[in-house]
Amino acid sequence: MDVIWQGVKEGFFLILSLDQELVSITVLSLQVSLTALFIAAFLGIPVGAALALKKIPGKKMILNIIYTFMGLPPVLAGLLVYLFLSSRGPLGEYQLLFTPTAMIIAQFLLALPIVAGLSARAVMTQRQEVYDTAVTLGATRRQAVWAIIRESRLGIIAAITTALGRVMAEVGAVMMVGGNIKGKTRVMTTSIVLETRMGNDSTAIAIGIILLSISFLITFFIIALEKRSFKDDSSIHIV
């Protein structure tokens, strides 16, 4: 227990001293994960909404595939990206392996099915009433579809925060395609693995605290954007 407490204390000291390496690892982690999440949300939300609302042949099969990929093991995503980006792979000529771009691609692959699958689920739970209410108030089809997506926003926000948790905590894929190169592709999760192996518990704990705090702050920020829709007091009264 003393070791952990000592680690926590040293960790806080490292954070407060704004250790240069710690700062660069944190910044890179944020750049990689938020870029991957942004692209996944940009593509995943419309894909999810389209799957929920449009008549698409093989829709059930597509959804089943997406739901399966929501549980895609990070090392498998890493392996796929590795095979595509390695010098012998189809995208080898771009020399992206062991760069932050490769890490973004890997994290994007992990986040996309989560955003698309959960967004589709959120939109599907909306009732016919939403569309009817919008069109009877004079909305065009496009405006009415937008109303359905808007009404699904709590579920969509949940999809984004879930995907954020997935990419921020992910280690296997970024390790494989990024290589954990100091000053170039080292991020928080890969650093924790490395520092723990080297016996630098305090540094590992410090990075862990930062990782957790950042995840909390980002989630808090996303929820605060829609604070009117989230209620802490549940409307279900269990007696």
């Binding site: 009817d132 009877t136 108030l137 004079g138 808007r150 009404e151 926003r153």
Partner: peptide, 17 residues
């Protein structure tokens, strides 16, 4: 439709004010 409106049994209220 822009010349009509409908009120149902449990009218749907959009999220918000």
């Amino acid at each position: 439709r822009r010349q009509m409106a409908m009120v149902t049994q449990s009218s749907y209220m959009f999220l918000g004010s």
